[in-house]
Design a protein around this nucleic acid. Structure first.
Lengths: 344, 344
DNA sequence: TGACCCCCCGGGAGCGCTTCCAAATTGATC
DNA sequence: GATCAATTTGGAAGCGCTCCCGGGGGGTCA
């Protein structure tokens, strides 16, 4: 509260003067550093309260060369990236974790080359102390941001060909395997998969998981169609699968959107889900509840992903050297897979 | 390009030294201020290129007391605010406009009291030069941010009881009227409305538009149920309407989500849309294409809203005194309204 | 009582930039 | 060729903070 400060905020000097101490002492109180007597500390605190003093972050940044904010970059090709519920959840986690610190969060969308330049400029000018970067596809040049700029960068997911020093990821391979194993366990044998774009790590990892499970079961893993993580792409891929492998009895889609597309096409072709064909997705976004039937899928800890990214970055800024984190995912059984009698 | 700067960025002094001019001159070149000879200007530019110099925004901020970034705040109660396609579009517009300047955009979610405090602290500490604030409901204390802090604030939509100095809004009243007039023109007479929460300006304005049109047509405007802008709320309201006014032949829902809810309930009650009942929504979000039948609705220029907010804030920061802006919306005819024969 | 240490304290030098101001230069004019 | 205005120039004072450092002041131990 205090009286409203019409234009000029009080400065540390004014606080010091009012408290009758040196500026250094006042500074120590604010940063609660040691070596200040109880009496002076209290005097300063009183002065701060009376003046309604708020430290000027800019001045502090100049003196410490730490700006006190971090950026979360969304290099999504999808122009609607901001509306993407996946990102929304990640950001929520990031935000929650950062709220515990006094770091400010800057969200920047860097979908276009132009946006990427903007991000790069931002980082070069050190307008942020650190960066969180989401899953880059293929040979995105942004993957080299850490070396280029020397700024701490935490990746969410891994770029395809670069092994970043610091990242948080979901165990896509093992989780995909989990999904396929569920299909196997429930008696499916002629299992197909709809992959994501294979120039991303997520998609290839999930595809590997599919192959792992099939190999272990001694089954062929050649019923494959590539999608692009969209509903439409999933539908198209499903159409091709149905065409090439009319006998399939289950499909593992590398994400929920594609699974939804597959569901649509299966119904259009008169295949009952889960009666004739079992379908399993990946992500467990809210949309998975709105398909008909409700989608059995792999639940990713998306918010936790964001939280861990933020936590890792904070650790990094504090000079620690955290380890990469691989988050587990789990199966969520709903209605698109049902146990079926074993047939040849 | 240039050689990679391992840790320390070059400073203005170094540029000046290399160019053989004073720091003041170098500064003038950078801010392309007048009073620099052609020769020196070029020398400085060469030095900048050679050193790969990037001005330090923090230092500049301290000297000018302008930090060079603005914040867009989303005081949405919906915890999934970030995923909201409406906000996504606004942000896209803001972002596009700001890309023309060298202002940085900070997105802050301020749904909780805690988040609001964070925003307030941010502003008090002058970590931003200006604020864009979206539609506040009821008596949100954030509505007084401008007076409290003296910082330039542009509103998107208007708070209910406060007339802000600077805002961009859609002409909700006139547009709602447009919607209802369309219903009238197509031969509907027993028209009901599902309003939004009436502690918001949007909702009351759209309700007024409904009443305007009905009054003009000499029809009663008493078929009213309040919703909350959600699909579920819309469905509940529709149920109540059907109960109280079984003879209704059309409904104007104050947004698309509620219209979707209404559609669902109407179908469940065996009413054909548009055959028995015409339904019209408001917003024209992407979801309006995914209802069955596709929704006739009012298209809001959402991205333009964001663009204009940003443009206005930029003008404000440049010391201009822009006028509030009211954006027009337009009717989009799809399949949920059909011309019907006039009956008593 | 003197030597030594540990705290507390304030002075002051930055951090990298903008900007005022007075001095120096230029050029045009009589 | 001298005078005056217009332009260009660099010195220096900040912006508000952090943090190093050296100077006391009080305690402890021989």
């Amino acid at each position: 509260m205090g009286t409203p400060q019409p234009s000029r905020q009080p400065t540390l000097d004014e606080v010091a003067a009012l408290a009758g101490v040196s500026r250094s002492a006042a500074s120590r109180v604010i940063n609660n550093a040691p070596h200040v007597s109880r009496a002076k500390r209290e005097a300063v605190e009183r002065a701060i309260a009376e003046l309604g003093y708020v430290p000027n972050p800019t001045a502090r940044a100049l003196a410490t060369s730490q700006v006190g904010s971090v950026v979360f970059a969304m290099p999504n090709d999808d122009p609607a990236a901001f509306g993407d519920p996946f990102f929304a959840q990640v950001v929520r986690g990031v935000s929650a974790e950062l709220a515990k610190t006094d770091l400010e969060l800057m969200l920047v969308a860097a979908p276009s080359p132009h946006g990427r330049d903007r991000l790069r400029r931002l980082v070069r000018a050190r307008r942020a102390d650190g960066v969180m970067l989401m899953a880059l596809s293929g040979d995105d040049p942004l993957a080299h941001l850490p070396e280029e700029t020397g700024i701490p960068v935490v990746f969410g997911g891994r770029p395809l060909h670069v092994q970043p020093r610091w990242y948080v990821d979901v165990d896509n391979r093992a989780s995909a395997r989990l999904a396929v194993e569920h299909l196997l366990r429930t008696g499916h044998r002629r299992i197909a998969t709809i992959t994501g774009p294979l120039d991303t790590d997520v998609a290839t990892a999930r595809h590997h998981g599919f192959r792992d499970a099939m190999a272990e079961a001694g089954l062929p893993a050649d019923r494959v169609a590539a999608g692009d993580f969209t509903e439409t792409g999933g539908a198209a891929a499903m159409t091709r699968l149905l065409d090439a492998f009319p006998d399939l009895d289950a499909v593992f889609a590398a994400n929920d959107d594609m699974a939804a597309g597959a569901l649509r096409v299966l119904r259009a072709h008169g295949r009952d889900v889960p009666g004739d064909v079992g379908v399993i997705g990946f992500d467990d976004l809210p949309a998975a509840l709105h398909t008909d039937p409700q989608l059995t899928t792999i639940h990713q800890p998306i918010e936790a992903l964001g939280r861990e990214m933020a936590r890792m970055l904070v650790a990094l800024l504090a000079g620690e050297r955290p380890c990469p984190i691989i988050l587990p995912a789990r199966l969520v059984e709903r209605d698109s897979v049902r146990a079926r009698p074993l047939t040849g």
